[in-house]
Nucleic acid binder design. Sequence first.
DNA 1: GTTTCTTATATTGTCGACAATATATACTAA
DNA 2: TTAGTATATATTGTCGACAATATAAGAAAC
Lengths: 245, 245
Amino acid sequence: MESPSAFSSGVRRSHQPDTEGAITIAESVFRQIRQAIVEGSIPTGSKISEPELAKTYGVSRGPLREAIGRLEACSLVVRKPNVGARVMTMSNEQLLDIYYVREALEGMAARLAATQMSDTEIDKLRELLSMHGSEIEQEHGQAYFQKEGDLDFHYRIIKGSKNERLINLLCNDLYYQMRLYRYQFGMRSRRVPRAYNEHEYIVDAIANRDGEMAELLMRSHIRSSRKNIEQMLKEKALATGSNAS
Amino acid sequence: MESPSAFSSGVRRSHQPDTEGAITIAESVFRQIRQAIVEGSIPTGSKISEPELAKTYGVSRGPLREAIGRLEACSLVVRKPNVGARVMTMSNEQLLDIYYVREALEGMAARLAATQMSDTEIDKLRELLSMHGSEIEQEHGQAYFQKEGDLDFHYRIIKGSKNERLINLLCNDLYYQMRLYRYQFGMRSRRVPRAYNEHEYIVDAIANRDGEMAELLMRSHIRSSRKNIEQMLKEKALATGSNAS
DNA sequence: GTTTCTTATATTGTCGACAATATATACTAA
DNA sequence: TTAGTATATATTGTCGACAATATAAGAAAC
């Protein structure tokens, strides 16, 4: 509804194809719903009613279904034939599964980034990191993670790998799921300062063009994050008394 | 066309939902096209004409488009808005990209399999492996590679990780692309015997419940495979005289 | 002869309607 | 009252038709 692309308005003047842009309704609705999901506007586990959402976004069921298909492709919704789609609810096991995948993929990304990133890219990464550092001092660390600054850092390294497949897997699929989880569980990390230091070490390794070390550090970084979450889940299970298998 | 699920035929007798099966036309046609692509029946790079394929499979364009969407999700086709879809053509770079991703993911899979696979699963894996061994002796390894027996082994270990996300990524996406590539380039591996031995070492590590070692060996295995391919690509480039960047 | 613009054709994207399936409601029987 | 069954309703899956865009064919200008 908002943001009508500058070219789509008005009449096409020539017969040259829209070499770029060319946003389709299905794609637009897909992005909107995805945003709504990771923000929590559409609650976890809730049913996706096609007629309802179609009316909400003012489109027909056709493109809407295509949008749902894409959401399913990145695991943000699960769909049962003839029944419908629900927003994914992430079990503890699924969350940990994702961390193992991240450990493997981002470790590789760091290794590749150490050889693929340009010097200027590394400089900019350092800049970003020091910016985060000052934010942490100011706001006692909460802002850093809350505002998804942590993700920025990881994104940069992933992109730095210059491996298209790796980038797609992590940035288009896993990281949206991470954000969804973050909403679902609403956890605050207690290890912000330590995580920040780990980030610094990783950048150092990349700057030294030491791929082996960069991978080790990145894997250790993500592994620590996973163990932290495992710990929190354990405490949570004790607190509620409910036994999570 | 074949394999009509046992329940879908006949009249529904009760109002219980089809808790299982429930195959939709879109899903069916998706699988058929996917098979056709990895077999090479639909050539690499060829355009996917919606009206044409709809007639071929005897369905409307609706479910066909959904099928194409799923093919796009696993990168078997690339789609440009308002233009259409083409079967993916894998560049050398893309192929190598995939190998890096495989190295990371399957390495992790082997690590997890070492702790997650049951003893009987490991026994069955050994069985499969020795079967492959005898096949290789008989037919000098070509059949082994051609019949994709190699993939069986990797599948087992991936499944053995018991990590749903890992399994999905590898088995539903990357491996179909690998098969497509195998058709596109029609390469024969020269390192079947060596690969077989590497497989044995990997199983040993898993049987010893040594995840660290299993990961190292699996990564080395895939890395060797990649380097072999890099070598072949280099030779190919020299032979044709065309310079691949 | 080449290039540019115009027209025509084909394909993709979108829509509304119908069919098939699942879920909810009402009813009957024990 | 409860279990089971039959009806009614709602939702999903599929279809054919229309609109928008891109590609191909043809005409005009240089």
